[in-house]
Amino acid sequence: MIQAYLGVDVGSVSTNLVIISELGQLLASKYMRTNGRPIQTVQEGIQALGQEAASQIEIIGCGTTGSARYLTSMIIGADVVKNEITAHAIAASHEIEDVRTIIEIGGQDSKIIILQDGIVTDFAMNTVCAAGTGSFLDQQASRLCIPIEEFGGYAAKATNPVRIAGRCAVFAESDMIHKQQLGYNLEDIVAGLCEALVRNYMNNVGKGKEIMAPVVFQGGVAANQGLVRAFKKYLGFEVVVPPYHDVMGAIGAAYLAREAVKRKGRTGFKGFNLENINFRTTSFECRGCSNACEVVQFFENNNLIARWGDRCGKWELQVG
């Protein structure tokens, strides 16, 4: 049996699970679509990992990150729950020596993290605007009937990327339609879109940040070669895409679990067999005041184990 750590990153678009060894070697990984069902997806992912690895691997620590990190921690019995920024920074600084800048673009958010000597010194996340994120690319790819996987290939063939206004997803779309109606070819438009997205990222999330090499580009969107090229062109130097760029958040959570368990002594991991446990949530609107908070209740086999969502703390509950 190899002792190992599990990291789970449940974001808006994808759910990623990894298992790493004591030395940080990646033993197994899963990249799944969350499809709006985080609980089910995590259960399925854990189950699938178990079938692959349970016979050789013993999980001695587990951590969660991503926007559903609290929910997920209750499903798997996590030893540590960490925000995405810290998780990504930890993973990148383990994988790439002396990393100074992390560009992370996910489904619905994008971030920039600045590090010095392995420590985060500054970061920013996009606010309400989604113009620089994966969902926007997804949407445009499907409008142009190009599978998102081939997006990069199209961009690579461009000879003269057209200039597209990338300030806002809605305006970028109308600008693209305008260019396509004028007869520009698809390759140039796709490449132009990649450049617009990079410009938007730099002016929005990257505003005022000094970007120094080595730059690591991670998150699901880093699979897109068109964007990698556009970042290189904009920055004027190399951009590193780590081999497991799409599961870096989960890798970070696994590293954090390794630390947490050293402090805690033992793991709270519930095991790979989650199929027999019934997790469900219900919600109700609190009538206590005019805030009308939507309170979520989380059940494990009909036992209420947590409740959250209220602003005043009246319903807040966590068992165990």
């Binding site: 960490k82 925000n83 920024i85 985060v120 010194t121 970061f123």
Partner: peptide, 15 residues
Amino acid sequence: GEAGVRTRVEAFLDM
């Protein structure tokens, strides 16, 4: 939302 504020604050404190 509370989530956005909490994520940023947690990351800031970690830092």
